[in-house]
């Protein structure tokens, strides 16, 4: 077949696309495809909003019965819930499909990723984007904004920086949780519920008043899966309240370190999972 005649060759036409173009192309197509099933997309958006709303309602019901829990009032907890749910929903939006590895394995999608010249984990991450989670993030954002305005917070540079650092780190911690779960699921093809205990249990934990936890819970969700430091501890710091045993408020500035720890844990888990897939099962 002859080459089509190009009158004025555009040099850009002969340049290979950038490395990032591949991820961009996939993500853009995911967004287009979700929006093309309109009715469905709106149901999803509604359902997602309701999830966030009902989770907030569950917290509210407890505070409806008592004035304060573990030293925090409902106003205070709005701040905790806001940080936790906003960062969790955004992590879910970008990484939410990573903990559904069994689906990828069954459909053979993973084998196809191996045939492409990009790192497999990056392909898995960028293969989908859950736009429907935007509405849930809105609930988190709303709660955060109300929480920030109803509480007495001194808006020093330090506190503003702390809030920003916390939101980013919390997003990273929750994202890493999903990658960790994805790695584990290579071993437990039917055991997704086990990882849910920590991923979704972790989200539930992140919105809680960690001072009411027993010591094992503080170890599990304070340090191993560092949920308490993603929202509760920074919120205490912003509110100028003292931290409970095991969770002093100076830890609030250490959330980036916890994010690094969680990502290291996640990447290690993913690597083990991939090794198992390539080495142990077919």
């Amino acid at each position: 077949m002859a080459d089509p005649v190009v009158p004025t060759p555009d040099p850009a036409d002969r340049m290979p696309p950038s490395r990032l173009a591949a991820y961009g192309a996939v993500l853009a197509s995911r967004i287009r495809s979700q929006r093309s099933y309109r009715a469905n997309f709106y149901t999803d958006l509604g359902a997602s909003f309701l999830i966030g709303f009902i989770e907030l309602a569950e917290v509210w019901i407890l505070f409806h019965n008592v004035h304060a829990l573990g030293g925090l009032t409902f106003r205070n907890i709005l701040l905790v819930f806001g940080i936790a749910d906003l960062s969790f929903s955004i992590a879910q939006m970008f990484f939410g499909h990573v903990d559904r590895m069994p689906t990828f394995l069954r459909a053979g999608t993973l084998d196809v990723f191996y045939l492409r010249p990009q790192p497999v984990l990056l392909q898995v991450i960028t293969s989908e984007i859950g736009l429907r989670r935007l509405t849930r993030a809105l609930v988190g954002l709303g709660s955060l904004v109300i929480g920030l305005s109803l509480n007495e917070i001194r808006w020093t540079v330090g506190n503003i920086a702390l809030l920003a650092v916390t939101l980013v780190s919390a997003f990273l911690v929750h994202s890493a949780m999903l990658v960790w779960a994805g790695g584990v699921q290579f071993f437990l093809v039917s055991g997704a519920e086990m990882t849910n205990a920590f991923v979704y249990g972790g989200r539930y934990a992140a919105t809680q008043v960690a001072s009411v936890w027993s010591t094992p819970l503080k170890v599990l969700f304070g340090f191993i899966f560092p949920m308490a430091v993603t929202a509760y501890v920074p919120a205490l710091r912003l509110l100028g309240l003292p931290g409970p045993m095991w969770l002093p408020t100076w830890l609030a500035w250490w959330t980036p370190a916890f994010a690094v720890w969680m990502w290291a844990f996640a990447l290690w888990s993913w690597r083990q999972g991939i090794r198992h897939y390539q080495g142990g099962g077919g």
């Binding site: 036409d13 591949a22 961009g24 192309a25 197509s29 053979g108 084998d111 196809v112």
Partner: peptide, 30 residues
Amino acid sequence: FGQRSQLWWDLPVRESFSILAAIHRIAPGR
């Protein structure tokens, strides 16, 4: 692989091709 697809099942064929072109970093003209 006869049993597994590398196309995006909910997209037009043409779009799968253009995504794959980006994935393999093929110049647009080529």
